[in-house]
């Protein structure tokens, strides 16, 4: 059975590293894994999406409507944007941080009020203030590892050491300890 994780956020938030980290752990665990990324223009502060799929044999690298077991949303309203990708019994793990898009800043559109509360009525939601946890761990840039920490609780087949090992391998040496701390703070939520 193939499982699908969709990671959504704002260009520059570290969604690519998140998908690569999750992918790395799943490969180590012996799964067939596919990731899909989008590079280029959308990275400039736009809405970004990456996919992680794993199982015995994975064909399509993309996650489509109603297919995601998990959506890992790095920003409060991005989860709402991609809600239709979530399986009926899937879980939305979301950062409560709000980042206003340029359309809102310039007054052309409005940012929905209390998006996380509204989402909670529509699907299973696990909300965390990942920015605060990342700050506490030492850097706001560690939002991605905090959220992976939260996600790790939903993947019981993977033990904590495998996650920490992946952080050691994929993160630049001087940021490893910080990211491990961020991961654990997300996992212990």
């Amino acid at each position: 059975m193939t499982k699908s994780i969709m990671i959504v956020g704002v260009g520059g938030q570290g969604t690519l590293l998140a998908s690569r980290l999750i992918g790395h752990v799943l490969v180590e665990k012996g799964f067939d894994v596919k990731l899909s990324e989008v590079h280029g223009m959308s990275q400039r502060g736009g809405s970004v999406v990456t996919y992680v799929k794993y199982g015995e044999k994975v064909y399509s690298p993309i996650v489509d409507k109603g297919e995601a077991d998990f959506i890992l949303s790095f920003e409060a309203v991005e989860g709402a944007r991609y809600l239709e990708m979530l399986k009926k019994d899937g879980t939305l793990i979301t950062n409560t941080q709000e980042i206003y898009p340029i359309t809102v800043i310039t007054g052309g559109a409005s940012y929905p009020a209390e998006p996380t509360q509204k989402l909670s009525k529509l699907c299973d939601v696990k909300a965390v203030d990942a920015l605060a946890l990342a700050r506490a761990a030492g850097s706001e840039k560690a939002v991605n590892t905090v959220l992976i920490g939260v996600l790790s609780n939903y993947l019981p087949e993977i033990e904590q050491d495998a996650w920490l090992g992946a952080i050691e391998k994929l993160v630049k040496p001087k940021f490893v300890e910080l990211n491990k701390k961020a991961f654990v703070s997300g996992r212990e939520i």
Binding site: G46, V77, A109, P112
Partner: peptide, 20 residues
């Protein structure tokens, strides 16, 4: 048949790429 999905139900503001 399409898979059953949930929708947010109100407009989500567009987030186009922007100069840094």
């Amino acid at each position: 048949k399409a898979k059953e999905v949930s929708r947010f139900g109100e407009p989500v503001p567009g987030r186009p790429p922007v100069m840094c």
